[in-house]
Amino acid sequence: MEVLHSTTTTWHQACTVEDIPADGGACVLIEGRQIAIFNFSRRNEWFATDNQCPHRQQMALSRGIIGSQGEEPKVACPFHKKTFSLRDGSCLNDEHYRIATYPIEIRGGIVYVEV
């Protein structure tokens, strides 16, 4: 695994773009943390969030359904349908929950996540 360092960020090589299904997600392990990576191909955007849904602490968000609420890209937990913004991690249907989001970049077919 390649790790790129700079003065303010650390980027981790997570996977290849082919590892993430179009309009879907998959989970990677970075520094002992489960990170959900989403390829929102309909919008030509990529997102990275915690894989754990804070509602029931289940590691399941990478298997959630992605879509949009207005212009906001979102993921719905596959178990209890809590929906989270893929941009800022806020819960769109319950203000008591939030997930972490991470910067993501695609470089030469490789997905990098800053953790």
Rank of each mutant, 00 (worst) to 15 (best):
G109K: 10
C53K: 03
P73M: 01
E45N: 15
G108K: 12
L92P: 00
I66L: 05
N93A: 05
E71F: 02
G109E: 05
Q57S: 14
H5M: 11
E105S: 14
R56C: 00
A48H: 05
V3I: 15
G67Q: 04
P54L: 08
I35N: 07
V115D: 01
S85R: 09
V115P: 06
I37Y: 02
A22Q: 15
N51M: 03
I99A: 03
I66G: 01
G32R: 12
Q58G: 12
E2G: 10
G108H: 11
M59F: 13
A14R: 12
R33L: 10
I66A: 01
G70K: 03
I37M: 05
H80E: 02
W11N: 09
F47K: 08
V17I: 15
D50F: 07
A14P: 10
P54K: 12
T8L: 09
G32A: 11
I104A: 06
C15P: 09
F47D: 06
L29I: 15
Q13H: 13
L92F: 00
R98E: 12
C15G: 09
H5S: 13
K74I: 08
C15A: 14
N93V: 00
I35R: 08
V75K: 00
V113T: 05
H55M: 03
E18H: 11
I66R: 00
V111C: 01
V113W: 04
H96G: 04
C53P: 08
L4W: 10
L92R: 04
N51Q: 07
E45T: 12
E95I: 06
R63Y: 03
T8N: 11
I65W: 10
N93L: 04
I30K: 06
T101Q: 05
R107T: 10
Q34G: 09
S85A: 07
H55D: 02
L4Q: 10
T9S: 12
L61P: 04
N51K: 03
E114T: 10
H80I: 00
F38N: 09
I20G: 03
P78A: 01
H80V: 01
R63F: 03
H96Y: 07
W46N: 14
C91H: 01
D50G: 07
A76V: 01
S41M: 10
M1G: 14
C27H: 08
H80T: 00
E31Y: 03
H12E: 02
L61E: 05
E114K: 13
G64R: 00
R107E: 13
A48E: 03
Q57E: 14
T7M: 12
N93P: 03
I104L: 15
Q69H: 04
R56Q: 11
G70M: 02
E95C: 07
V115K: 07
G67W: 04
C27K: 15
V75R: 04
N93Q: 02
E114F: 04
V17N: 08
L92A: 01
I35A: 11
I37N: 04
S85L: 07
S6D: 15
Y112T: 08
R56S: 09
L29V: 15
